[in-house]
């Protein structure tokens, strides 16, 4: 994964210009490597034809694990491992298990989803991912093309595309 990539990127000043450029790139069948922005741009997912995130499914699975863990564990403790009568209630007093079951469902789902999110995004404490420009987290919107080993003609075509769609700056960088 640590192969060096040559990247050609254009910086745009406005997200609406960026969206138009992305749509045009798609209709011209240009292969965009990635798009970077300082905040989530609405409509960008559709323009890039990104598939819907399946993160919420992970959340459901982790939540279900939490539900089962909590409920089955309490049931096992109070009916098998160490049955105690509290206030004359039955050993298996399901309604009293509901609050903890709910809390652990939320806890498992949240932790599971957050850990999954950082893992699939390749992020975590101390991780350094290469960035193209410091202004991308400030006020610039960026379209990046992977031009590793590309012919000069192809690079020129992409460069022309970026300038013609409104990129204020077009740069190349090795990451």
């Amino acid at each position: 994964m640590n192969q060096h990539k040559e990247v050609l990127y254009g910086l745009y000043d406005d997200e609406e210009v960026l969206l138009k450029a992305v749509r045009k790139a798609k209709s011209d069948h240009l292969d965009i490597m990635d798009v970077f922005s300082p905040f989530p741009v609405h409509g960008l997912d559709d323009a890039l034809e990104l598939t819907e995130s399946r993160l919420h499914i992970t959340g459901f699975i982790f939540g279900a694990i939490g539900t089962l863990t909590a409920f089955l564990f309490m049931t096992w403790v109070f009916t098998r491992d160490w049955p105690i009568i509290f206030g004359g209630k039955p050993y298996f007093s399901a309604p009293a298990f509901i609050p903890i079951t709910f809390e652990l469902t939320v806890l498992f789902a949240s932790i599971g989803m957050v850990v999954t999110f950082y893992t699939i995004c390749g992020m975590g404490p101390g991780v350094t991912n290469p960035t193209l420009d410091d202004r991308i987290t400030d006020d610039k919107f960026c379209i990046a093309f992977d031009v590793t080993g590309a012919e000069a003609k192809q690079v020129d075509k992409l460069r022309a595309f970026l300038s013609s769609t409104g990129a204020g700056e077009v740069n190349a960088k090795e990451i």
Binding site: D34, S37, P40, L50, L55, F117, G122, V127, I136
Partner: peptide, 15 residues
């Protein structure tokens, strides 16, 4: 955490 602002990351972040 090595945030880059990639479109896919933002999509997951919003989700």
């Amino acid at each position: 955490f090595g945030w880059t602002g990639s479109a896919k990351h933002w999509q997951r972040w919003e989700s």
